[in-house]
Amino acid sequence: MRHPSGRVAAALTALSCCLALVVTGCANPESEKAAPPAKAADGTQMNLSPSQDRLHAQRVAAIADSVPEPVREDGFLDIVNLAGTEPPLSFYATDNQTVIGVEPDLATLVADVLGLKPRFHTVSWENIFIGLDSGKYELAMTNVTVTEERKEKYDFATYRADEVAFEAPRDADWAVRGPKDVAGRTIAVTAGTNQEQLLRTWDRQNRASNLDAVTGKNFQNPADYYLALGSGRVDAYLGPGPAGAYHAAASGKTKVIGTFSSSGDGLEGRIGATVRKENGLIEPVAKALNVVMADGTYTEVLKRWGLQAEALPKSEVNPPGIPRS
């Protein structure tokens, strides 16, 4: 079983001095202007204020002109993000209103190349897909893993490596190196995610080996699963690797005890920009991503949030995804 701890470990190091205040989402707007940016262990200044001064890219006419006409004429790209709860992916700034993070930053670059203005919408996990299905949102850039099941309804353009992390209380005396380490444990996961699928796959493998079953507990927001973790109702939380590393560093109450590619079986998991299947946007989005990957702005955005280790060399449309469970 592959155990690629390097990427998440790098994110953990880069984010070790981040503010716990931001993770809990309880910043005081009155003090925001006086608060300095968070400083990562490598000296990187992390701007957590509403004034993000985001990086931008140039419009590329040949790509912008290939955007479907209704979107092009509207002039806006409606982008859906998970409600700001997962730093450094997508979370609220110190005003507790403005959504910031690597996902909105990368989505902004895509919109720039397409010659469109980004219009962000923050919703719960399940409403991301409901909104894409209905056409309310045109693009999701919010840590969606490419899976074979999702490819039946959606098209993907990859933009980050996908690793997941097990996060446990700081005094935990166990680690996760493979399926057998979660046998008999109670693990928190968000319903409908790839992490939940991974846990179920491992549980089946354990049962086939006559090991104890794993109990999965579903939660939909960080406040709930971290409360369960702190109270001992669950042994660990399985979620996105960057979010786990960020929270562990910022809170000082938890630690990452195992990291894996999202597939858990050797296939490299990928995060993809997501659109409703055959809506005409995925090729322009992939081309836009490849432009910013080539010109360096993509790398600068990842560095801004300590996620350089998740960089991909190019964006691919609908690559092999995580198999059905």
Rank of each mutant, 00 (worst) to 15 (best):
V80L: 01
P240V: 01
G184P: 00
R54E: 13
G216S: 15
V292W: 06
C26P: 00
V113G: 11
E167P: 00
W305K: 01
G75C: 05
R2Y: 06
L302D: 06
P68D: 02
D155N: 08
S66Q: 14
G266K: 06
P323V: 03
D295F: 05
A243S: 15
V123F: 00
N96Q: 10
A249G: 15
R119L: 11
G115N: 03
G321W: 04
E30F: 11
Y298D: 11
L109F: 00
A41E: 11
D224S: 15
P169I: 00
G25M: 09
Q58K: 15
T13G: 07
Q308N: 12
G241K: 01
T44N: 02
F260L: 10
I257P: 08
G101D: 02
C18T: 15
D78P: 01
S90E: 09
V285G: 02
S90I: 02
G43Q: 11
A161D: 10
L89Y: 06
A11G: 09
G239E: 06
A161C: 04
G131L: 01
D295L: 04
L229G: 08
L289P: 14
S124G: 10
A38S: 14
L307N: 07
T186K: 15
A249R: 02
E283C: 01
L132H: 09
Q197V: 10
A309Y: 06
E73S: 12
V110S: 06
K153C: 03
I187H: 06
E283F: 07
A188Y: 14
L55R: 10
E73N: 12
D173G: 04
G178Q: 05
G135C: 08
L267V: 01
V146R: 07
T85H: 13
T145I: 08
Y298V: 10
P29C: 06
D133E: 14
K253L: 14
R185K: 15
E149K: 13
V22L: 05
Q45H: 10
W202F: 12
G84H: 06
W125S: 09
P70I: 07
K136N: 13
P4T: 03
L114D: 04
L109M: 03
I63A: 05
T259Q: 10
A208C: 00
V8G: 04
R119F: 12
T158I: 04
F76D: 13
Y225K: 13
K255E: 07
S231D: 14
P50T: 04
P319N: 02
G266R: 05
A183Y: 03
L48D: 13
N210P: 00
G101F: 02
R7H: 10
L106T: 05
W305E: 03
T85S: 13
A311M: 09
Q308K: 12
C18W: 08
A188L: 10
E30S: 14
R54F: 13
P284N: 04
E300N: 12
W305P: 04
R160N: 08
I130H: 11
E283S: 11
G280D: 03
R200D: 14
A236R: 00
Q197P: 00
S5E: 14
V317R: 14
N28K: 13
V256A: 11
T158Y: 11
A249H: 07
E149A: 15
Y237D: 07
F91V: 05
A61K: 13
E73L: 08
K277N: 07
A35I: 09
I271Q: 12
G239A: 12
R150Y: 09
G321P: 03
A286W: 11
